[in-house]
Design a protein around this nucleic acid. Structure first.
Lengths: 346, 346
DNA sequence: GGCCAGAATGTAATCGTTTACATCGAGATG
DNA sequence: CATCTCGATGTAAACGATTACATTCTGGCC
């Protein structure tokens, strides 16, 4: 493959001049510049970015470490990240399926010299892990607690969102509200559970462990958890799933069992993935501006990269919004029902 | 940030020895190796991959150029790509939103020196564009015609799938079958249209231009197209959308118009994205093994990378499968239970 | 024509690695 | 004891660019 030297030789100039043409073309006389461009084109020359970034110590690339790539949530996050990064002239290196600390640290090392900064979404990373990693590489944590404020982060208002949704169910008259919990050790999962508890406490409900089931954030987990919950006596009248995937699993289970939603069981999710409004019945959920999440994280990271020296640690949180659809049993505007007032369920 | 020289100095050895420890550790005496590893850890040293790949001319990275990142189709493709690439120790650099030829060529140049090969998914790339690009970079085309066999490609059996689906609708007794066409100039779109025509021809139906509407592969486009189609007299009794997104738009439109599916209008899509089975009614579609598509492409690309010299051009096609659900009006199994996915959702 | 300023271009060091080749010791061999 | 071998380590040249600094042109002015 042609290098800058080949072009220089062929155009009878020095490499410096060729380099200048491809960077600050201004200083090169127009006729030489044109000659060089022609030669470059005929040789199909393109600058070698690896070499370039070695000397400039700038890769124009940011690394994205994710636990997984499956499902609408990640797809949306990445989209937000990509849009913002590209807007600022940055490329994206994406690396997924990092489950334990060891893998993540390995992946972070692997990013050394490839990226200018790192976006890290991982349930079980903590500040300590970051110490085992090439120093002075800006990092932003996604959906993870930035303990001790040592590192930037952007998180979802999980607590508030969950409390609000459970509050909504309570306001509809539900007294036995079950929760399908997210993956163990996951920050979002823990916070949503906390929000659930808070809402119950505020309504002076007795906590009831039998109404809390693990769902692992997966659709299958939601299905299984629902099967368990329906065996509990007295039966819950509402199920709050800590994400939409599990809520979808719950809807499947209820359908298989012949339980009508929302008449005999209210269901609500979290995230408001695009799929939610297409469910039957449409799923009430807590909207998270998912692609914003990614966009904000990139913004923060880019600031960290360009103002490396005096960039103060920051923590942003994206706010959530209650989205009421039919599955929770409240009247709603999705498909306007005939005049029907708020009706207590049982 | 610490470099190999720092480590060498601190451990009182030469850079060569340090390098050897991080590569073929075998030749270094165990006690020196340990000393070096300790020093490296204390300095938080990690090898600079940019420099490394400059000299080895190997980046262990493949570039992925996509038109967009939105929607389940891309999400699945990327997942397949990521899984396979990671399995072979490759990283992914992803770049989306490339619409016209110029942008794509720019993006391809930008990949020079960053990647060992390129996965290119673009409706309007052709063999000629590839000539304007750094030579000898292996490329695999996704869902695009590899005219003249100059370049590897993997494509979907669009023609067969579409013909089969339209044949299915015909077998159900439909005689006026409309099509919502995909994006203009898009290869998949053209092939699916061709399959539609073939099926009609085989049934000796007269082609009717008024039954062909553009939908641009988007949900909104499908909605609009459906509105138009319902104004056609005599009205079609079935709509074949060239992808699921448009079919979903069609379902929305029909619901808004009060047309019952499948009783008064059969609807079918293409791709069988995860959402399809959740629609109301569940959407008949043509299943495409989307993540396989990505996986196969990576496999082909890796072969091209490792056997650069004598790698014969190849073209693979992934096969499709008819998936009959309620929306087409045929008797069919009830909704399948959720897939038992073990995969983590977040 | 000689001089000079400023524009255009060239020279060479540098970025952080890898690796062919050179060197150095130490133990084995005759 | 000289020599040979071989294992461990060091030296230095690449890789392909950028860029400070040096050098060479160019044309304007006296």
């Amino acid at each position: 493959m042609a290098t800058i030297k080949d072009v220089a030789r062929e155009a009878s100039v020095s490499v410096a001049t060729v380099s200048r043409v491809f960077n600050d073309a201004a200083v090169v006389r127009e006729d030489t510049a044109k000659r060089i461009r022609d030669v470059a084109a005929s040789l199909r020359y393109a600058p070698h970015n690896g070499a370039r970034s070695l000397i400039t110590s700038k890769t124009s690339t940011i690394g994205v470490l994710l636990p997984d790539l499956y499902g609408e949530f990640f797809s949306e996050v990445i989209r937000g990240i990509d849009l913002t990064a590209r807007g600022s002239g940055y490329h994206l290196i994406i690396s997924s399926s990092h489950n334990d600390k060891v893998e993540i640290e390995a992946a972070m090392r692997a990013m050394r010299g490839r990226v200018d900064g790192l976006l890290l979404m991982s349930p079980d990373i903590d500040a300590n892990s970051l110490l085992n990693v090439p120093a002075s590489l800006p990092v932003v944590l996604l959906c993870a607690p930035a303990k001790g404020h040592e590192v930037d982060s952007v998180i979802i208002q999980n607590f508030r969102g969950a409390r609000e949704m459970v509050g909504h169910l309570i306001s509809l008259g539900h007294r036995r509200i079950a929760i399908i919990k997210g993956a163990l050790g996951n920050y979002d999962a823990a916070e949503r559970l906390r929000g659930y508890h808070a809402a119950l406490r505020e309504a002076d409900f007795m906590p009831d462990g039998s109404l809390e089931c693990d769902g692992g954030f997966t659709e299958a987990g939601g299905y299984a958890a629902t099967m368990e919950l329906l065996a509990v006596k007295p039966c819950p009248t509402a199920i709050f799933a800590a994400n939409d995937s599990m809520a979808i699993g719950a809807l499947s289970a209820l359908r298989d069992l012949g339980v009508r939603v929302p008449e005999n069981m209210a269901v609500a999710g979290f995230d408001d993935i695009p799929l939610a409004r297409y469910m039957d019945p449409p799923l009430s959920s807590v909207r998270v501006p998912i692609s914003d999440l990614g966009a904000r994280a990139v913004g923060m990271l880019l600031h960290g990269i360009t103002h490396k020296n005096e960039h103060t640690r920051r923590r942003e949180r994206v706010s959530t919004e209650l989205v009421v659809r039919r599955s929770s049993g409240a009247p709603c505007d999705e498909r306007p029902p005939p005049a029907r007032r708020v009706r207590k369920q049982r």
